[in-house]
């Protein structure tokens, strides 16, 4: 009797152990499946089109069998750069404010607001851009309005919560004696914050920027709604352009055969960008520790 109970117990423990291990393996399986399916469907198309033609060609003309994603790469890089220019300074300074300048009460009031900013769905951001920012650009510059500038502004706002949260954590983690030491040497509070605390948190702040870049380059719906999606190289930031993500959303609904595979190839390019960003991020995070 006791033996049987012992064995039943051991069996249950072992089964549970295996089940938990299997659950842990799900994320490995998921990443493997994503890679396999994406590359399996995308790479043959890229090979058929010719990797050089695909990556450096600026003509996207599915009916004529021309598939070049160079313009979309440029588009993604442009809007991401624009988002960084807008979102990073404001985000990092805001993090510095929350970490070293604001009173505890102000922080308690502001943090939920920043969380809300992070929680707003991207379609709402896109819609806001469509009804506020695009008309604003149209009326102030006399252009169509759907532009790199509009997308950069919206993306800049969208990556701010990420940058604030991660930068703030890095700034908060700077030991107090750094600050106190600088203060004791006669530096003002501002000088301590900017010349001692901020540099000490540099790798964490960099990590927040990279995370923001990842979000900006992968953002789809908000960008598609306000960037115009024209396939051509822009001459100014008031021109529209198409991003890698936009290319997929715009045409996936009706694409077939090589066209469809070329779109998946677009996702492969995007995926490679994201992997590079991920590697950079984990390298930085390791250094921050």
């Amino acid at each position: 009797m006791a033996f049987r109970r012992f064995y039943a117990h051991a069996l249950r423990e072992n089964v549970a152990h295996v089940l938990f291990a299997l659950a842990a393996c799900v994320s490995i399986v998921a990443v493997a499946l994503i890679c396999v399916f994406l590359f399996w469907s995308g790479l043959p198309a890229i090979a058929q089109i010719g990797p050089l033609e695909f990556l450096s060609g600026s003509v996207w003309h599915p009916e004529a069998g021309r598939f070049g994603v160079f313009t979309m790469i440029v588009g993604s890089v442009y809007v991401t750069a624009g988002a960084v220019v807008i979102g990073v300074p404001i985000g990092v300074l805001c993090a510095l404010f929350l970490s070293r300048f604001a009173s505890r009460r102000v922080v308690r009031l502001m943090l939920p607001g920043i969380e809300l900013l992070a929680g707003i769905p991207s379609v709402v951001y896109g819609f806001f851009g469509l009804v506020v920012i695009v008309p604003f650009i149209r009326s102030s510059f006399g252009v169509q309005g759907m532009s790199i500038l509009a997308a950069s502004l919206v993306l800049g706002i969208m990556i701010m919560p990420t940058i604030i949260a991660v930068s703030k954590a890095a700034l908060d983690a700077v030991p107090d004696h750094y600050y106190e030491g600088a203060l004791a040497l006669g530096a003002s509070h501002e000088r301590c914050a900017f010349r001692v605390v901020l540099p000490a948190a540099a790798s964490g702040v960099m990590a927040s920027v990279i995370l923001g870049v990842g979000r900006a380059i992968g953002e789809t719906m908000a960008v598609v709604m306000i960037i115009g999606n024209q396939v051509r190289l822009p001459s100014s930031i008031l021109d529209g352009i198409r991003t890698l993500t936009g290319n997929i959303v715009m045409e996936m609904g009706y694409a077939a055969e090589l066209h469809r595979e070329a779109l998946i190839g677009t996702a492969v390019v995007l995926f490679v960008f994201i992997l590079i960003i991920n590697i950079l991020f984990s390298l930085l995070k390791r250094r921050a520790k």
Binding site: L33, I34, F37, L38, G214, I217, G218, E219, T220, T245, I248, V249, M252, I264, A267, L270, F271, I274, I277, N278, F281
Partner: peptide, 11 residues
């Protein structure tokens, strides 16, 4: 965590 949602969509 880092994969964009559109890539999830395609997958």
């Amino acid at each position: 965590t880092g994969i964009p949602s559109i890539v999830y969509g395609l997958f």
